[in-house]
Structure formats: C-alpha cells, structure tokens
Design a protein around this nucleic acid. Structure first.
Lengths: 191, 191, 191, 191
DNA sequence: GATGAATGAGCATTCATTCAT
DNA sequence: CATGAATGAATGCTCATTCAT
C-alpha cells in the first residue's frame, strides 16, 4: 500500500551535485539565457532547492565556473607538472584551457557577463595560482621560460586565451603559439 | 495621445551625433545598466529620436563600438604608420588599444555582452584590418616583426588585449610586452 | 530586485479562477482597453500570476471567451434540448446568444479584435458544434426546421447574430426572427 | 538649368485621392497593422500630407470605408434597381456586399476595430439607406419580399453578412440564401 | 528540507500625432 | 502646402527571488 515516494532520500549534498551538473550542461549549451527554473527542472528539483544551495543566480554561475576550474586544476596537476621540460608543461596547460573555453563558449560568456571576468576565484583560484607558480618555477629551473614572468602575468595570458578561445577570431592554437614565443627566455628584454 | 514637443526640429543629423555621444559617455561610465530612456534624456531628445537613429539597443551599442573603432583607426593612421621602425608602430597601436579599453571598461563589457565580441565590425572593421595588414607589412619590410604573422593573428592578439585591459588581472602593459616579445622575429619557430 | 510578496500561496487553481472572473468583468465593461496590470490588481494578484495562468494577453481573452461559450453550452443543454418542439429550442438558443453578446458588447469586440472572430474554439467549441447538431437533428425529427441546414450553416448564423447583437444596428431580436423564418422548412428551396 | 521638381503641381485634391487609394490597398492587404507612415510612403507623400487630409487615423479608415460604400452604392444603383423582380435585385445586392467583404477581409476587420462597426456612415450611408428603402419598396411592390421589413432590418442583415463574409465560418453564399429565405413573404409571421 | 506558486519592478519598443522648416 | 524628424506616453512581458505549505 505504501507507494515509494519519488525522490525519497535525496540527501542534501546529492541535490547540490545534481543542480551543479544540470547547470553546467545548460550553461555550456545555451549560456546566459538559461533560467533558474530550467536548471531546477533539469536537475529534477524545485527552484527552492536550487536557491537553498546557491543563494543567487550569480552564485550558481560562480559555482559552475569553479567546477570548471577544478577540472582544469586536476588536469594540470596530472599532466603539466611532470613533463620532460617545463615549457612543454606550460604549453599543455594553455592548450587545455583553450580547449575548455572552446568547448564551453556559451558558459564562458555567461561567466564573463555574470561575474565580469573569467578569472579563477575562491579556493580553487588560489590553488590554481599556486599551480601556476609551480609551472613557472619549473620553467625558471630548466631555463625554458622567461625568469621574470609572474603568476599575475601568467593569468593575464590565461584570461586572454580564454577570451580568444571563446570568441571566433581565428585559431586560438596560433594564439597559444604566440604566447609560448613571448614566454621564451631568448627574447626577454627586447623592446 | 502625446504631449506637444518641446525642442523640435534640431537639425537632422546633429541629433544622431548627440545621441551617440551621450551613449558613449553613459556606457563608458555605467555599462550595460544604462537604459534607452537615459540615453535619450542625456542627449536631450525623446526616446523616439534615439530609436529613429538606432533601431534597437543593440544597434546603438554597435554604433558606439564603431565610433570607438573609428577613433582607434584615426589614431593608428596618424601615429602608428610613420614610426621609425615598424615594431614601434605596432607597439603604439597595442598600447593605444589597451588604453582605450582601460578607459572604457564598462563600455567594453557592454559591447562584449551585447554583441558577443569586441571585434571590429562593419566598414571601420574592414579598414582596421587593412591597417593591421599595413602594420604587419611594414614589420616584414624592416624585419622587426615575425614574417608569418597574419592579420587574423594580430586581431586575436588585439581581442585578447581588449579582454585583459578591461579586466583587472594585472598591468595590461606587461601583457603588451609579452605580445611584442611573441611577435619578435628571433623566436619564430621555437616550439 | 523584487519586494517581498504580500498575499502568498493562495491555493493554486483558486487564483486562476479569480483572474478569469476579474478579466471577464473588466473586458465586459471596458473591452480592449483593459490592461494586464488592471486585471491582476482587480483579481488581487500580481501580474506575474496572471501570466502564470495565461501566458499572453490573447490567451487570457481566449479563456474568457471560452468561459462564455461554456456558459452558453450549459444553458443550451439545460434549456434548449428539451423544448416541446425543436424550433422552440433553436430559437431559445439564438435568443440566449444574442443576449449574451448584448450584455457583453465590449467583451465581444475584444474577442473579435484579439482572436479575429467570435467563433467558438477548442474543446467547448467542439461540444457546441455537437450541441448544434443535436438541435438541428431534433428539428429534422419533428419537421420544424429545414432539413438541409448544416452545423456550419447554424454557426454562420450564430456568428452573424453575435455581430448584430454586439453592434447597435437595431433590435437584434428582429434579426433572430428573420433567421427563424429562414430556417423554416416551408421556404426551403425558394430562389 | 532648372531641373523639374519631382511632384510640381500636385494640387490639393489630387493628393487626397492618392492617399485614399494607397490606404485602401494597404488596409485591404494587411489590415490594422498598416501605419500612417506606410500609407504616406506608399502614396508618395509625407505623413504630414496624410494628416492634412485625414486628421486622424480613424478618419482615414472612415474615408476608406466610405469609399467602399460608395462603390457598393454605385453598383447597387446600376445593377440592383432594375432587375425583373425586386427579389433578384435584393439578392444581387447582398451577394455584392458579401463579395466586397470577402475580397477585403483585412480592411473589414480594420474598420470593425477602428470604428466599432462596419455599418455605413455619413453621406454615403444616408444614400445607402435610401437605396435600401427603394429595394424594399420594390419588393413590397411586386410582392417578392416580406412587407414588414424595414431598412433597419435590412442593414442588420447587411452587417451580419459583412461579418460572415469577412470571417471564415463557411460559405457566406449559403448565408445569403438563408437571408433570402427569411425575407420571403410566405413565411412572414411564423413563430 | 523541498516545493513551486506568487511577486512586481524593470524596460525595450511602438506609433499616432505635431510642427519647425 | 508639403515634409518628415521629433515626441513620449503607453504596455506587454520577463525572471530572479521569496516563503507558505
């Protein structure tokens, strides 16, 4: 006689994840036009639940952005810190970032619009900065990257790359090549 | 249904200019939050007049963007094509663009949001591309710029710079330096 | 961006009815000039609620029209299918329709303007057609109505009557008399 | 040296006619959505000129309507007053009216919306009433039309027919048949 | 906790009409 | 007389956010 309730024990955190996942997909596909109610529906919850976990639309987008940064961070740790030379690791890092933004153009634009920038934030942001520092440190170590490049410099380049990859201005891989050239120790100091 | 007009018949095209000017200032200051009615008021005309000259909000923003590009074009023609060496001209070009976007951050964001990109469009866009070609040609001539750089490459860099300068990721002048380094003929071809 | 709600959670479908009722009255009184906001206010809800139940202004008017048709249907079932002779039933039907349109002239005009016609639509429309068929069938049965009259014919007459009753061209009851005369079996076939 | 001016001696009344003609066509095609500026353009004049001749949009529509009534009047005088029997003349009258409304559905709707009715007005309206009286008088004379039919009755029927013909409820010619039947002297007085 | 109905400020856009030139 | 640029009130609709149930 007791029909099982539809979503019986969807414990708290589970819902957060579902919402985040739904939001990630929707924003990646349709960008800023997705509405909170759609996210809720797609996640199989009510709007109220979305708001329980993400107090504002902006917070949700922030969280989606952070999730993407976390992915990037994981990739970089696995693939960019252990390359034969540091230069190679750095390039892989940039190529991955370009790819992520190309694949999620609409999302990137939403982030830009909602947060005013695609720069990494929060905890993951801090870890990314650390990671960037390590990439540069390695470069300084083996002499394959200009020694005067700061983490701030690197993330300007990353931000620029994000903009290039989400736009349709040409082959962003060429842009990466230019950045790698600009980071070459040989040319440091040219006017 | 309407109340008698207050300041009628102010010379045809004059109003277009006033609206454009007002819009330029307002968008530069407050970005996407400015409303059509504000623009009208600030220009001293009715909304209808704004719409007569710019059929949609997006068209207005497009026009403001184009005006900015026209300024850049004029600057570049005057200051960047006659430098002692081509590299210097190119650098001045980039520095000017960075400055324009730093000074009009809010506007740059509005353009990005409304048009999806800050890339030059239309007639002025075409002229800018030509100008870019000349800048690069000069560089090929005196050997101060990588010979394989295309106009498309250049405008990827310009777009990237626009993103960097309107954001707050660090000193965009440093970014310009990296780009100049990347465009150095010496490093062309490094992996 | 919004202010806290004032009268929340008033039972789901109850609100739909209140809106419909308010709209019916307002449109009957003042016709096409009523605004969505007025309907909302008069129903004691926010505009958003009106739009939740009726996605567009036209949809609201359609619903009001349908409600009126439903009334007519109910009347006809109760009063027109059980008259001594079918002719009498048909006449009562027409008289009721004329009365409804006379009483809600402004509404009838709104419907005409918004929907392009006052013809019954949707589900209720289908039931009305069935009812019309029954009325005619009865007439064929007792020989009080021309046998060649189709439901389509009948609803042309009904539509015509609606137009006459909502206009001010004369006593629409006279018009009904002419229609009854025209439906008389005696004259069928006259040139 | 003197280039002929474009429209040199477009004397007053000529423009009125051009505007009226343009308006007739446009309203017949696209109905209420035509704007005053379009009418002006289509007539090859400025909006101001349209307003000189027709002080409001409604006045313009009224004039277009009147022109149509004038056509009907002319037709009726030529074709309906001289038929062998009066009944035939009356029928031709109705058929012509139906045709006019079928051909100019959009216009008919505009008139209905703007003026609240498609009933003939003004001077032409008066003449049409007279004409209607004559048609009925002839019918009384040769006994082919119910003697108790008034001009008001006739114009209720005409208005109804206009509604039927401009709608898409069925074959309005059938409706005309029913009206003719209803006007038959044989059935006068049936309940 | 979860739900989703309710809220309502906000805003781009339209178009009949006017009147300086 | 003709022109057409200017006017601005009017209005349907959206959607992030709240909170009674």
């Amino acid at each position: 006689m007791s029909t099982p309730s539809r979503r019986p024990r969807a414990d708290a955190g589970r819902n957060r994840a579902r919402v985040l996942e739904a939001a990630s997909e929707l924003f990646a596909e349709r960008g800023d036009e997705v509405q909170m109610a759609e996210v809720a529906k797609s996640a199989g919850v009510g709007v109220g639940t979305v708001y329980r976990h993400f107090p504002t639309r902006q917070a949700l987008i922030e969280a989606v952005a952070e999730a993407r940064f976390a992915e990037i961070l994981a990739f970089a740790r696995a693939e960019c810190l252990s390359t034969p030379d540091a230069r190679e690791g750095l390039k892989r890092f940039l190529l991955h970032i370009g790819q992520v933004h190309e694949d999620g153009r609409a999302l990137s634009r939403s982030i830009e619009t909602a947060l005013g920038s695609t720069a990494p934030r929060g905890e993951v942001g801090a870890e990314l900065r650390e990671l960037g520092a390590e990439l540069l440190e390695r470069g300084r170590g083996d002499g394959t990257v200009r020694a005067d490049v700061t983490v701030e410099d690197l993330y300007m380049i990353v931000g620029a790359l994000a903009a290039v990859a989400r736009a349709d201005w040409g082959d962003w891989r060429r842009f990466v090549d230019f950045q790698m050239a600009g980071l070459d120790p040989e040319v440091a100091g040219r006017p």
